[in-house]
Design a protein around this nucleic acid. Structure first.
Lengths: 340, 340
DNA sequence: TTTCGAAATGCAAGCGCTTACATTTCGAAT
DNA sequence: ATTCGAAATGTAAGCGCTTGCATTTCGAAA
């Protein structure tokens, strides 16, 4: 019998409370437009029936869903997890719900996810990085869904973004490294393909090299996935180069920690035999031994700011300017001057 | 001018293609019910107009949203991130979208999130752990939204679950530890309050103690958050006990890694001076030095299975049985027999 | 060519909610 | 007691989609 009963609707509540649906609706959405006594009665009916509004209907009626979509490459990575969590929390504070999808670094999948989230009525979208088919932006514009790009900052890009300058950030770290006297440099990086952040970081290293009059071609770069064993192999490849690099710059902390571990396994001392650096400053960077020299990125702040900006774009239809966050170098034990 | 144009609807497509809305709808949802020529024309119109279906309307019409909600304590933690990612991927394969919310370990917030996700038309819900106000289950039943509990397994619980037996898993690890001769045991654990998994793991330790004729009261347990410094302090507290524990059992890997690091800072050798164990076997467990002895939990499989089960519950209205996943002990370097 | 049934398409009624507008209620001022 | 305007509530028209049923189309058999 219980199971026969269907989900209560506004109508049911209205009947139970002896008022019109309009009144019930008002009780829920603008309580002050309804007199106390009525409201009490209605709310009681709501409680008794276990009523919950149907969002589909609501979305249709108001043309707003109070839902924000986010498409991240993956949720597994601490880098996105932290920012995403902050993003979600801030969104919640402002009355929005987060719809997430992950593209697993596949452009096609991302494109599909964009369509899906828009269909589902997302009022706005958070995207990671600028790199993607222009058709996606075209579509979003067509659908009048504001999109914000995060984890990177580009003043000149047409899309508004909240993030930091990957290139400059990495350049500063590289400057630091070169200043210590390193000249034989290995790089472990995620795939550059379709990932502007990765490319920018590598360019940052090149910038530093150039400014010292060194040739970028001297860089030994290995691409790898985040898989521990893959990273280990990448590190091996770098260590096989002769003369051996005195420092391995990693595209992010996850890669760096993997390299660190491999060095340990091989009996290569860090930083005595080789220095290793990361990027992002995830919590882990401080925990590993030796602690990782890295670039601190304000992930939480980025997530929070992105949420604020996006909600602003949605609610006020503003276009506004992009937000640039600052990064800071964290010098820790994993970096030292090269051995003589 | 562009900006004046409003989002295209089914109607617009129908007009553009010179057919009825029914035909357009069929083209999109059951292409074989429409003749080739027509379909082509319609799809072209869809393309040209940049049409994307309005899910709100769709949900209302079909009473299904193809959306599954998940409420996790936090996304920051690698433990949930991994399973959640797998959950999402499997969901996507089956044509569902994931709606996530995080409760940040607050029951009230969780309750609110449940309402929200249901309102938003989630066809099913993934919840972590059994511990929560019965009213929540009541509500879900009322709304006819199937819910699946994960990250734990309890044959007797009324809610269906996909997970593993936290108590037995931890007991096995504790048996191993006791078998090595440890008798002075410290425990670092997350808050027990409202977290059945945490409690079960501690009970598992107690089970092992009892079976050896040892008193559970001899256990020194410290609760902490996941914050690195907090964990360090928890470890300090344990190390201050005299006689000092010979092993510190941590409720999960994140805590264990924090303890490991603190031990290093204090010059306490692991496992020579003290053994440390974790739980979950996140990737990190293999990376830290010394590698962590822990309990391997098949997170990805759990996420995937949960997705399958939940979709099944949604589509076939099955109630079925819970799924129990196996865990395995991973003995690594951080555990050794106590010093004489 | 005509006929007929199956296949293709169209028609139109909701789905549950919000909200502009219409109507009723109510308290204060007369 | 009336009157009147503001406050409270009710009425009903959509929002964009799916789908059962009605209608049209079309190809094959007669």
């Amino acid at each position: 019998m219980q199971s026969e009963r269907s989900v209560p609707t506004l109508d049911d509540v209205a009947k139970a409370a002896g008022v019109s649906t309009a009144t019930v609706s008002r009780c829920l959405n603008s309580p002050d437009r309804v007199v106390d006594k009525t409201r009490k009665r209605v709310l009681q009916a709501v409680e008794e029936l276990g009523y919950a509004p149907n969002f589909g209907a609501r979305i249709m009626a108001v043309k707003r869903s109070f839902t924000i979509g986010a498409i991240v490459p993956t949720m597994e990575n601490a880098i996105f997890a932290r920012g995403l969590q902050a993003f979600q929390e801030e969104l919640h504070k402002r009355g929005y719900t987060l719809l997430v999808a992950s593209s697993t670094y596949q452009p096609d999948l991302e494109r599909e996810q964009v369509h899906k989230l828009v269909s589902r009525g997302a009022d706005g979208l958070l995207l990671i990085g600028h790199d993607r088919d222009p058709a996606v932006y075209e579509f979003l514009k067509n659908q009048q869904v504001p999109a914000l790009v995060a984890w990177t900052y580009a003043a000149t890009a047409p899309q508004r973004s909240v993030g930091f300058d990957n290139r400059v950030a990495m350049r500063r770290l590289a400057d630091e490294i070169l200043g210590l006297g390193h000249t034989r440099i290995g790089v472990i990086s995620a795939a550059r393909q379709g990932n502007d952040r990765v490319r920018q970081r590598i360019e940052g290293i090149n910038d530093a090299l150039m400014s010292k009059g060194l040739s970028p071609t001297s860089l030994n770069t290995v691409e790898t996935t985040y898989d521990v064993d893959q990273v280990a192999r990448a590190f091996d490849a770098l260590m096989a180069v002769r003369p051996r690099p005195t420092v391995v710059i990693c595209g992010n902390d996850v890669l760096a920690v993997g390299a660190l571990r491999r060095a340990y396994d091989l009996g290569i001392k860090v930083p005595q035999d080789v220095s290793i650096t990361g990027f992002d400053d995830i919590e882990l960077a401080r925990i590993v031994v030796p602690a990782l020299t890295t670039v601190h990125v304000p992930h939480q702040k980025m997530g929070r700011t992105a949420a604020q900006e996006l909600v602003d774009m949605v609610e006020n239809k503003t276009t506004g300017a992009s937000v640039k966050l600052e990064t800071h170098i964290r010098i820790r034990e994993s970096l030292a001057a090269p051995q003589q």
